[in-house]
């Protein structure tokens, strides 16, 4: 507060030495300001690890308890779409990393291009996720809302999946546990998708700001820290993909 008063009175030039306009007065140097915001961003990401960690732990324990149900549940997922989405997300992490580089090098055109590519790849990811979720709806695999355990009590009634995996019929009590697999599937991919939606919204905001040259004048902290968020969301998917899609192919 006293700082801004001092500035208004023109005393500022006596008190402070020269520094870039984006350096806040309570920081000694730009580097210190960068490190402090970077540190804060990492603390936020740690809370996110704990948040997703609860879901991962629930998955670990329930998969252990109801193993046959979780195996047959995961046979309903498409490895093709899962692999495609993993690829899309990894490439979007790369374009995000390149956004940071372009901001550091003060290349406005390159920054805009990379941000727009990241934005589009994020939307492609959600689109593919939408295709997969839609399939779950059509097959009555949305727990609590549009659900039937027909495919697990009588796997032959689901010819496509049956042709690939030849699953055995589950006893009614175990078949009913597949719903828990789908509950966790929707909770985990849904929470991940929510993070993607938030990220895409912030990317839209950044594209508008980048057009005015906001990040290419040497102050790229926002791009760097948003990049951390985006890569974090990528890492969550890097674990969701094998756990939900891959590890239960064989019984």
């Amino acid at each position: 507060m006293s700082d801004s008063t001092a500035t208004a009175n023109g005393v500022e030039t006596e008190v402070h030495h020269e520094h870039p306009s984006y350096q806040r007065h309570h920081f000694e140097t730009v580097a210190q300001q960068f490190d402090a915001t970077n540190f804060a961003m990492w603390l936020f990401l740690l809370t996110e690890i704990m948040f997703f960690g609860g879901l991962f732990t629930a998955y670990l324990i329930l998969r252990n308890w109801y193993y046959p149900a979780f195996v047959e549940g995961s046979h309903q997922l498409s490895i093709f779409w899962g692999t495609a989405n993993t690829t899309v997300l990894i490439i979007s992490s790369f374009t995000m990393a390149m956004s940071v580089w372009n901001a550091q090098m003060r290349r406005k055109g390159g920054l805009l291009l990379c941000l727009v590519l990241t934005f589009i790849l994020g939307l492609v990811f959600l689109g593919i996720k939408g295709i997969e979720w839609h399939e779950k709806w059509v097959k009555y695999h949305v727990p609590g809302l549009h659900y039937s355990d027909q495919s697990f009590r009588n796997p032959a009634s689901d010819p496509e999946v049956y042709a690939e995996y030849h699953d055995k019929s589950l006893a009614p009590d175990m078949a009913s546990k597949v719903e828990q697999y789908f509950f966790l599937y929707f909770a985990m991919t849904g929470m991940h998708a929510l993070h993607m939606v938030i990220g895409i919204a912030i990317l839209g905001f950044m594209i508008v700001r980048a057009k005015t040259g906001a990040y290419t004048s040497g102050h790229y902290t926002f791009v760097e820290n948003f990049g951390l968020y985006w890569h974090f969301v990528d890492i969550i998917w890097i674990f969701l993909f094998p756990l939900l899609y891959l590890i239960s192919r064989h019984q």
């Binding site: 790369f94 990393a97 990049g227 990528d234 890492i235 890097i238 674990f239 094998p242």
Partner: peptide, 13 residues
Amino acid sequence: AVLKMILVVLFFM
């Protein structure tokens, strides 16, 4: 997955 995470954290992040 852990190896991929380490690569992302060390270099992209």
